Simulated assay, not measured.
Amino acid sequence: MFLLVFTGTFVLALVPILAMSLLSKRKNQFPVTGRTVILTGASQGMGRGVAKLLAQKGANVAIVARDLKKLDAALEYIRQAAASSPSQRFIRISADLTKYEENIRVIEEVTKWNGGQPPDIVWAIAGTSIPKLFLDADIKTLRDQMDINYWAGAFMAQASLKAWFGPYIDSYSAPPPDPKAAAKSKEKPPPRHVILTSSSAAFVGVTGYGIYSPPKAALRSLCDNVQSELNLYHGAFASRPSSTLIPQVKIHTVFPGNISSPGHAAEDLIKHPVTFALEKDDPMQSEDEVAAAAVAGLERGDYLIMTNWLGHLMRWGTMSGSPRNGWGLLDTVMSWIVNVAWLFIGPDMERTVWKWGKANGIYGKDGRKG
């Protein structure tokens, strides 16, 4: 039932998707050639895939993770895939991003390495899932999941925004007497980007992800709130004579699904059997596929970015007050359709878990947690 309803909904979406794609051909909203990008969690998995793709597109890439051995291997892998540009540069930095001061250090090191200029794009990908039942999780695991899956992204986002806006905030007092006197320029610098990486699990409660999904859902809420706040800064700075020197900042959240990676393989070793049952029909993507889908969404200028068809359907079912992608018409119509579909999908998921428990007990017929 789960896959059938989602598949039917996806088919219904094909016509408006094709129509909107033909009507909304726009220039690349995410140029990276010659720009400096920080990627956290980039020693393996999705992060490594994104680093490779952006290097191929001509970006200067700084990869960040904890494990130096993995970072060195990833850096060489990225160099080999890079565009043939003599000016292209790469660096790796070992850091524990669950500590706020480490995020500040990363921004400062990259700024120094980048000739005194802060990075143009910061993409927080670092994260890990420990798929356990909520009642089985000890306090340390609960805190660790929040630290790496929420705070590491939130800290990096704030550190980046402070580096970008700080000099202008420090010199800002009040709007000039005549706002019309503010200098205007035909050529403004390209936007800077903060990109947070959540998960499609943030949209739907699934047995086994009770300690992973909440921090990922919190990242979406953070993005919505920061998106709103950015309008305050952009509006205030627009009235200053120096407004043409201040790049606009855009924030996005990416919601990948299952990725074939060392991290996912480790998850499968401890995942509850009923979690396998719930996601058995979910699509699986390679690190290159998820990277390509995420970057394509950024190039379209999307705000909430899905990497597969299932993610789109899950997002449409929980749009609430988040800004819509593109014109917003497709998002609105699909949210109506998917919310109707959830009348069937939600109960079916709950019945799957109930039936599994009835047939197997809590942990399976052998009674072990796993």
Results as ranks from 00 to 15, higher is better:
M1N: 10
L3R: 13
G8F: 05
T9H: 02
V11C: 05
P16Q: 11
P16F: 09
A19D: 00
L23R: 15
K25H: 10
K27W: 05
Q29P: 09
T33W: 00
R35A: 03
V37H: 01
G49H: 00
K52R: 11
A55Y: 01
A55W: 04
K57A: 10
A59V: 06
N60M: 08
R66N: 12
D67G: 13
Q80K: 14
Q80T: 15
S84Y: 04
Q88N: 09
T98R: 12
K99C: 09
W113Y: 09
D120N: 13
W123E: 03
I125H: 02
I125S: 05
G127L: 09
D136P: 12
K140L: 04
R143G: 00
M146D: 15
D147L: 07
N149T: 13
A152W: 01
A152P: 03
A152H: 11
A154V: 04
A157S: 08
P167A: 01
D170H: 06
P176H: 04
P177F: 01
P177D: 12
P179K: 11
A182R: 03
A183Q: 05
H193P: 11
V204S: 00
G205L: 04
G205H: 01
Y209F: 14
P214N: 03
P215Y: 13
A217P: 02
R220N: 15
R220M: 14
L222F: 14
N225M: 06
H234A: 14
H234W: 06
A238I: 03
P241N: 14
L245Q: 15
I251F: 00
V254L: 14
N258R: 11
D268L: 14
D268C: 11
L269I: 04
L269C: 04
L269G: 02
I270V: 15
T275A: 14
F276K: 12
F276L: 06
A277Y: 10
Q285F: 03
E287Y: 09
D288G: 12
A291L: 05
A294E: 08
V295Q: 00
A296F: 08
G297K: 02
M306D: 10
G311F: 03
M314R: 10
R315E: 06
T318A: 09
M319T: 07
S320N: 09
S320D: 09
G326Y: 07
T332V: 05
M334A: 12
W336T: 02
I337G: 08
N339C: 08
A341G: 13
F344T: 11
W354L: 10
K355H: 15
I362C: 01
G364N: 13
G370R: 12
